[in-house]
Design a protein around this nucleic acid. Sequence first.
DNA 1: CTGAAAGCGCTTACAG
DNA 2: CTGAAAGCGCTTACAG
Lengths: 353, 353
Amino acid sequence: MGENKVKRAGKADAFATIYDIARRAGVSKSTVSRVLTHNKSVDPATRERVLKAVKELRYSPNTAARNLSTRSETRIGLVYSNPSATYFTELLFGALEGSSRNSAHLMVERCQAGDMDVAYERVRSLVAGGLNGMILATPLSEEVTLIKELQDQGISVVGVATSGTRTDVSCVGIDNYTAAYEMMTYLIRLGHEHIGFVKGHPGVLSSKLRFQGIKAALKNAGDSVARPLFAQGYNDYRSGLNAADEILSSGTKVTAIFANNDDMASAVMSMAHRKGLNVPRDISVVGFDDTIAGTVWPELTTVRQPIAEIGGLAVDILVENIRRIRAGTPPLVKNHLIAHKLVIRESTALPRL
Amino acid sequence: MGENKVKRAGKADAFATIYDIARRAGVSKSTVSRVLTHNKSVDPATRERVLKAVKELRYSPNTAARNLSTRSETRIGLVYSNPSATYFTELLFGALEGSSRNSAHLMVERCQAGDMDVAYERVRSLVAGGLNGMILATPLSEEVTLIKELQDQGISVVGVATSGTRTDVSCVGIDNYTAAYEMMTYLIRLGHEHIGFVKGHPGVLSSKLRFQGIKAALKNAGDSVARPLFAQGYNDYRSGLNAADEILSSGTKVTAIFANNDDMASAVMSMAHRKGLNVPRDISVVGFDDTIAGTVWPELTTVRQPIAEIGGLAVDILVENIRRIRAGTPPLVKNHLIAHKLVIRESTALPRL
DNA sequence: CTGAAAGCGCTTACAG
DNA sequence: CTGAAAGCGCTTACAG
């Protein structure tokens, strides 16, 4: 980690090469290489010695040489079309870190949400530039046709932030159902009996799962909670504004509103303020994602997704599958569920009496 | 652009190599290489032929081979500590694109704003990992000591989003003074005579320049504008809330508030709503940066900085200087000013009569 | 100004 | 299971 891999101006640092390892372990370069790549057809004792030398010399293979020799650079695409900048930033961070950890190259492409034609085009242009793997963020991760198209071209795919058990493609994300269930239960335990829910984009799997989660929590609470108010949102701020307006103007009593994501929760708060309501005194508001902490007031109670971690894991899965494909082994479909967390901040309180 | 650089699973694509170019141009590989690197000590006619072959065969050098041969991977660090996610996302995009254009590697490190000790540490850990160049975003771009430290180690540095003429380090950004001047003038032309301004973080150069810009515009307007109300902010949402409260509770008439950045402008709107004011009917609000379009309501009138472009240019400058250093030529200090743009949206209107 | 040759650090058939 | 050898595509002294 701490080694200096770059020749600094002036100073010529010498790094251990495969030859150094070979000499120290008393074997040939070929054997060292074998230990480091396939990890098979090597005598256990020999392997031990090589690994020991690697550790002692803090050796790490030169990527350029390896790439040149194998003629196989690993290039991973990341396509994204979600409105939240924070979300994307975190995802990118994780993916970037994962890429450098695996010495892969990341090519990023952004496309406007909504317009699927453009999205498809972007993905294809990325593919045309040469690609081994692709990370698809929601809602692209639900485009079954697109995924199929990519896979047919020999490109490994992983969907990000889509949970749900899928058999067509690897996915990594949180358990949306449970998280939504927990948050709704928190609201109910706080004493809220008149609750509104702003639904997420209907085409997105996570919206469905979250909705199922809150309904289960509501059902579980039984008669203690009044019939909830639902309004349709589309995950963006603007639609959250409309949904909030709808709920708050309905004439029905509401002491808490749960929005399918933070952007819409922010809109709900904005609308509440407009209508002279104090958050959380008059009304509690909660979101989902934890992407806008510190940029709204009061600070939002929400569900935190470890997005960077998700991005890193996505790359790991991809790299593994790319290796498998290269080696002729069939790729694996993996479904990783990452732990989420309720983050209680300032936007929730006991209902007003 | 459209070539497939990666061997797809199964198919073995063949790319033009330096040898193909040499043969087609009727010269040796050495000459081709010379044309492509130093671009000197080559007969003009020969160069022409080589370049022609390169174009015809759509040749582009293999990065891995080049890196291996020169033993010089180009690694660029990007350190960032600003609260706006959008800003960062755009910067990262531009830098990423610039990096792949220059076949350099980008290592990103984020650190909390405010804590300079941590920031220094992050920068140093990045450097310890081996680095040729470093992009420093505001406010890190103003840490003269840090910059000096980096440069002394032979690392090229470029400050981002810091304009102002500096002689110690290359910079790329917009003309903050003029942009602020223009925005304030726009407000005055609209007819506003009672204006508040939320100042930016005092330690940041851009804040000073923007403040000077608005003062110049105010001065230029003469007696038509009342003595402006100033409140100190620190560029984050929270401080914008306080500043807005201060201005709006002062008892002095205010029909427009200009905040040093969008995060604070968003806070100003939030506070205005809280106080029962309608934006823009009762009060106009403008920001700076254009980082939160679509996530506030009403949509914010602001100054757009082409941040992605800035990020890309920063990488270009860095790469050029890294090459110079490697070649023994002294690096250049460049100051690039990128064009900004006023974006008039929904948060501004004529003052209420 | 130009070419032949060595070398960058690694991987991978090919023999054994 | 292991080693010697060839080769990946490029750059750069070294001669000329």
